[in-house]
Design a protein around this nucleic acid. Structure first.
Lengths: 228, 228
DNA sequence: ATTTGTAAGTGTATATTACACACTTATAAT
DNA sequence: ATTATAAGTGTGTAATATACACTTACAAAT
């Protein structure tokens, strides 16, 4: 019926776009490659899929190797297959993005594998098709953030309204009015206002909030999180 | 630095979810497998990626083999990697969806490869993880349809308002008010109203419309196509 | 004790968009 | 001329988005 003799086996890689947020800018984690090809250039963290594992597990494993982090939210972005994307051997790569909270985890990874945080906007050029992967991941993150509270992953447990606002401003690269922002967020009723205040940035201090997972799941999917 | 000796080569398949619209229901094209494994069961059309081609080309080639169609809109859905998804050999598969206009193309493919159209809702169970692929493809189609005029692909060149409405009703599985629907579509200003009428379904006849690609691209991204 | 500087916090009016809803019209067949 | 059928059309109301500026709480300095 059709000719199966042309089945060709090839390498399947996994590359991870690790997003973080430092309170001002959306960041990605890059490593300076310590091996050929392209030694010394910046790239995403990555590795190869093993026959015994699924892609999601490979992505989790690779993230853990490079950052020491487990239990991190990851989502598949897409699969990139340019014929000569890897000069060594025909390799197809599936990209995943991860969302992590820089403040809580940054110290662990600072010195391993020359990993470094870069603002999404002024990251250095990356090897292979990694720049394209990052662009795709960003698009997916934007779509995700419209309907789900990605702050769960990218912010510390307790955070101020301003920080949440700046997160959305960073992701969508816009500026928002704080009154409208807070009204919108309040209407979603997925945050718990704490009694605590964060006094690091003002004398008055600003109240801390926390995501209320239960409220969120009750209200889930009813309305999108932000209209921009 | 890290151990690359575990690079394992495997098969990469491509499976295609072919969506069509018959004026009433959203349909998918399935084939009855003429080969092992799972001979005689229903499945998506698929094949294997060759070393010399990119995934998009493989998807295009596979669609062409099974349907004779070229120049069809296709989009990557995702990559599925359950370890034992294919009992023969470790195989990872990337799914693509295609949008085609049944009326114009159906005759070509009717008898080849026992291909058959099924309503998305009452399709038979599929082999491997193909049901999951279809579900994912549907989700992606819904997201796509919110912001882009998929009618370009799924409808004939000229169509009635009712047909366009039924397309959205089929995709989102809702029913819409025709007055609100037409008002919304008109406000987008991406259709050209023709002088012709389609008289097949009523004595009065209903005017035909056509997508105006130029108007569409001018208005692109300004607002989403439908809020549901 | 008072003043001052800083960021936090708050509300309303207007514009836009979504939604609900029912009768009239054009035409072919009889 | 009558009738049956689907096409075509508009408005009022509710919900949501957007624009916009002053007051408050507090710590530090005097």
């Amino acid at each position: 019926m059709y000719d199966d003799s042309d089945k060709e086996r090839l390498l399947l890689a996994v590359d991870c776009i690790v997003f973080g947020f430092d309170g001002e800018k959306l960041k990605i984690l890059l490593i300076k490659r310590g091996f050929e090809p392209e030694r010394g250039k910046w790239s995403l963290i990555g590795g190869f899929l093993r026959k015994s594992e699924v892609l999601q597990d490979a992505a989790t494993r690779i993230l853990s190797v490079y950052t020491g982090l487990d239990d991190i939210y990851m989502e598949q972005v897409g699969t990139f297959s340019d014929v000569d994307r890897d000069p060594e051997e025909r390799t197809v790569s599936t990209a995943y993005y991860a969302l992590i909270n820089i403040a809580e985890h940054s110290q662990k990874l600072s010195h391993r594998y020359s990993a470094q945080w870069f603002s999404v906007e002024d990251a250095p050029p990356l090897i292979f098709d990694h720049d394209r992967m990052v662009r795709h991941a960003l698009e997916r993150l934007k779509i995700k953030a419209e309907t789900e509270p990605i702050g769960f992953e990218l912010l510390p447990d307790k955070f101020t309204m301003l920080r949440l606002q700046k997160l959305y401003e960073a992701i969508y690269n816009v500026s928002l009015d704080k009154r409208n922002f807070i009204n919108k967020v309040r209407s979603l009723d997925i945050l718990e206002k704490l009694d605590e205040k964060d006094k690091t940035s003002s004398r008055k201090g600003s109240f801390l909030y926390r995501f209320d997972a239960e409220k969120y799941h009750r209200a889930e999917r009813s309305r999108s999180l932000l209209n921009l």
